[in-house]
Write a protein that binds this DNA or RNA. Sequence first.
DNA 1: GCTGATAATAGGAATCATTCTCAATAAATG
DNA 2: CATTTATTGAGAATGATTCCTATTATCAGC
Lengths: 144, 144
Amino acid sequence: MQHIEPSVEKRLAAEGIRLTGGRRQTIATLAAMGGPRTAAEIHSETGDSIPLSSLYRSLAVLTDAGILASHHGSDGVIRFELAEWFTGHHHHLVCVECGAVFDVIPTADQERRMARLVEEMAAGTGFAAAGHRFEIEGLCSKCR
Amino acid sequence: MQHIEPSVEKRLAAEGIRLTGGRRQTIATLAAMGGPRTAAEIHSETGDSIPLSSLYRSLAVLTDAGILASHHGSDGVIRFELAEWFTGHHHHLVCVECGAVFDVIPTADQERRMARLVEEMAAGTGFAAAGHRFEIEGLCSKCR
DNA sequence: GCTGATAATAGGAATCATTCTCAATAAATG
DNA sequence: CATTTATTGAGAATGATTCCTATTATCAGC
């Protein structure tokens, strides 16, 4: 966690955003939990020390600043995790039973093949492709 | 649209589910609209003739029965469309600006390559992969 | 064509994640 | 230290979705 703080601080400073205690704790908690987490999960993990309204606000600010990334899960709940410049580019395994999400890191070759698919499929649609999102749906080891 | 009704009827009958007027209209509207649509969109498209509560219930029943498929968009809203056995297997182009979703149909070869990626990435994770979801994010022709 | 059993609907209330409001507080700047 | 501006906290508000209950439609068998 220590090693990410300087870069976070720098990035926030560049946008005139303060790294306050609550935000620091939010980031640290997410880093410790190590996967996409909901606001409620973060909230209870921190022992309710950050009010939900503040937590949501912090999550939005940090996501905006590119520190965090957010994903809307198939259960309609938003999950947050450290942005890819911390975690490395990755995709998700989603449990269709319990909604849990796990990270999976593609090899360079896999990612190259995926990028090619994006290119091919967006070609000739009038759509300016900016990124992609690849989720593998199935049952996690607990639910299967 | 006519050509899908018999198969829908058959499928619902097989599960002991009635094809009522409201459900018929819901399916027809979705077929006519031709992409993933929100409950609100369907509701206003049908001129508010189906109460939202009934519409939601119908959408849930039809999704359960495999007639429709649902997707949680990045704007936190659920969109419904005809299941893939009507539309063919496809993926989505998602506009990050306005949230609109468009279908894109992969070639057999593209799909084969994608399936291989799923296999490779799920291997050795303790995860039983059942499907995948591939979204290309970008700007639609209106928003770019 | 009835009748009874069951499924479906309408309408409104309830839920729940998320967002907003605004007064109070903290942080940075000079 | 004072000032300005960002941030927080607490609760209210929002909005999509779900739940509840009485009423209504549908189907199977007579």
